[in-house]
Write a protein that binds this DNA or RNA. Structure first.
Lengths: 183, 183
DNA sequence: CAGCTATGCGGACACGGTGTCCACTTGACT
DNA sequence: AGTCAAGTGGACACCGTGTCCGCATAGCTG
């Protein structure tokens, strides 16, 4: 049972963090900044969010839930019903949308390798693995991570920012990757 | 023109760093540790290597040079002469060897996104891009990063350590990826 | 409405790593 | 041997982190 002031502060913290991640590169946002902006003490901040990553994860949570829902019960080709290759391509397209809209948040998480331990990643992994199984690919476990690797926020950011690729180009290239499942 | 003591100290620093990266996770190795182990002051260390990443890059340099040489002038399928798909598969296999042998170094670099700025990455990129061009793939620029993404040290480490995959399994899965070029 | 309790708050604090700076040393050239 | 610039090393100040504990207050109870 969460107290009213606790709930209010959590909302403040998340909003402050969202603002800060939007206006600066993530490694320049300190826990102190977030606490200050939220009008909250350090102790209060650390009580719920032990580090920057957990804040960004919380921020992304709703968007991820939404996509998860569409993967499980949405219309094909994203949802069930379409051939695995098409569903994978649709998944890639949806992830590009998500990265595009919230890349600074995802990047804010600075997850690095701990990215693999988030619940969301586990879900993507399970989803893609099921597509691989449906497509009768040998050794699906080995291929899953490889197919998810291009969705790493750092990779996407580099493609967009440094190389100047458009979301559309990236989506199409990923679509070519998804075609692997067609054999 | 480098003075004799400077050269000696550089060698010491690199050896100390190699030892430390081999015996501990990278984020537990501080610049101070490296300086201590090398028997060198902090100032001396920072003079050449402004951060941990640059040390790891220096350590990896020779191995990368070696692979670059084999890509340019070695026997097919790694070197020139074989079909693009085969050369890409061979490149993947060689990279898995490199990651397997020196993963703690690569990880030590903690490159994160700055990984894309290293000279070695630029070389991999140019190489794979040339294979894509040779295979007449549309929009090679968009596909290059995607094909290199699975070689990110974090991804490889996760596959090996957490998922318990063997280098052979990973190589084979990457080989399946390389088959994209066959159409 | 008053009293109670435990949950939550917040700022002070100690710690550890980073990077800089400058007085001193030492190698290389004359 | 003398000169001087390159190189050295450790002290120092700074910053971010995470913890801890006295205090406030929300929410329950009678």
């Amino acid at each position: 049972m969460e107290r009213a002031d606790a709930a209010r502060n959590r909302a403040r913290i998340l909003e402050a963090a969202a603002q800060l991640f939007a206006e600066r590169p993530p490694h320049e946002v300190t826990m102190d900044d977030i606490a200050k902006r939220a009008g909250v003490g350090r102790g209060t901040l650390y009580r719920r969010y032990p580090d920057r990553a957990s804040i960004a994860v919380a921020l992304l949570d709703e968007h991820e839930r939404d996509l998860q829902e569409r993967l499980l019960r949405g219309e094909p080709p994203l949802g069930p019903g379409a051939p695995p290759a098409d569903r994978l391509a649709a998944f890639y397209a949806a992830m590009v949308d998500l990265l595009e809209g919230h890349s600074h948040l995802v990047l804010g998480s600075e997850l690095g390798r701990s990215r693999f331990e988030t619940g969301a990643y586990g879900f993507w992994r399970a989803h893609v693995r099921s597509l691989l199984v449906a497509a009768a690919v040998p050794d699906p476990d080995a291929l899953v991570e490889i197919l998810l690797a291009p969705l790493a926020p750092e990779v996407y950011d580099h493609q967009r920012t440094v190389l100047g690729l458009s979301p559309r180009q990236i989506t199409q290239a990923l679509g070519r990757l998804a075609a692997i499942l067609q054999r």
